[in-house]
């Protein structure tokens, strides 16, 4: 098509438009890229296109033909523009999909994982046990791991001849002027005395923490282990409450159908004292020690045993973790092997 052709004659203009209308669709359809199509669009509808030229020449057309001619030009423009836009959409879709295809990667290569660590199993078990009691209306506190002989033994009514006081059982520290005064606490029970000294009854308390005994590390013993202590003191606490609360705990921790039984035992700081056993894995086994707070302990901390009663209990977190997760050797719990730690999800 010759853009310089003289379109001043309406008849001539019509012919040219007709020619455009006939030829252009095929060319639009043949455009292979958006770019090609854009060039073509300029040729067909741009400033130098027959359509534009025709519009500009309308003024010089005879007045009686202007309206028809103008309409004719517009019809062609609308028709061709629609074809171009349709083709453009198609081409753009193809190009977009080609670009995405070029961006394709192997999604099975290892991703950038923000690796997650773990909290220690013993910690998890302690937290879980604390939470069970917190849900029953208890608060939590922790105490010093290095203790005085007074809080670890004397305030808890341990007789002077109690075997646990011996250097064969308890680790003593070279600290202060009085020999055998400062020691590594052998249980979390000293916090019973410390807490009661600092708080008025009622007391509903659990104490998670680390304790120490002079036991060589073997599959069932460790010089370092962990306990959760509990203490409830109020005006009307009975042995029945002790049984009810600890039985509830056992079922929360080990499962709703767990069976418990209480058998007499001895702890200097409780009277009567008991062990709670649970039936698990086909046998009865000891889960925790407990008892009614010995009036001597109330006297040692300045509570009036005529006015309050209470119960106390203590359990080993390490052992509970072993029971529940099938760990047969206590030493694994103190092994920092990442392959072990990763299991503590």
């Amino acid at each position: 098509m010759d853009p310089t052709a003289n379109l001043s004659e309406p008849m001539e203009t019509r012919e040219i438009l007709e020619q455009l209308r006939t030829e252009a669709p095929a060319r639009i359809e043949q455009a292979g890229t958006v770019e090609e199509l854009s060039d073509l669009a300029v040729e067909i509808t741009g400033k130098q296109s027959p359509i534009a030229v025709g519009r500009r020449s309308l003024g010089s057309a005879p007045p009686d033909q202007r309206r028809d001619l103008g309409r004719a030009i517009n019809d062609v423009a609308v028709e061709l523009n629609a074809l171009i836009e349709t083709r453009r959409a198609a081409l753009e879709a193809v190009e977009a999909s080609q670009a995405l295809e070029a961006d394709r990667v192997d999604v099975t290569l290892p991703g950038r994982v923000p690796e997650r660590g773990t909290t220690h199993l013993i910690q998890q078990v302690m937290d879980e046990i604390v939470d069970i009691f917190v849900a029953m209306g208890y608060t939590a506190a922790t105490g010093p791991e290095v203790e005085t002989e007074f809080y670890n033994f004397t305030a808890l009514n341990f007789p002077i001849a109690h075997p646990t006081r011996l250097e064969s059982d308890t680790l003593y520290l070279d600290y202060g002027d009085v020999p055998e005064n400062i020691l590594l606490r052998t249980h979390t029970s000293p916090m019973q005395a410390r807490y009661m000294e600092q708080h008025e009854p009622p007391v509903y308390l659990v104490v998670p923490g680390r304790v120490f005994r002079r036991d060589p590390l073997d599959p069932t013993h460790s010089p370092v282990f962990h306990q959760i202590e509990g203490l409830a003191v109020d005006t009307d606490i009975t042995f029945g409450d002790l049984k009810g609360v600890l039985d509830h705990f056992a079922r929360e921790f080990l499962g709703p159908y767990i069976e418990t039984k209480f058998i007499p035992h001895h702890f200097p700081f409780t009277e009567p004292s008991a062990e709670m056993h649970v039936y698990a894995n086909g046998r009865w086994m000891e889960l925790l020690g407990c008892g009614m707070v010995n009036p001597a302990v109330f006297e040692a901390v300045g509570y009036n045993p005529e006015e309050v009663t209470g119960f106390a209990f203590g359990m080993g977190a390490d052992r509970l973790a072993m029971v529940r997760h099938g760990i047969t050797d206590l030493r694994h719990l103190f092994d920092p092997d990442r392959r072990i730690l990763e299991q503590y999800r």
Binding site: G137, Y138, Y204, D234, G240, K243, G244, V245
Partner: peptide
């Protein structure tokens, strides 16, 4: 000796 489940008045964690 029958058990009795009783809740405390502690202040939580």
């Amino acid at each position: 000796i029958p058990g009795r489940l009783r809740f405390g008045s502690g202040m939580g964690l």
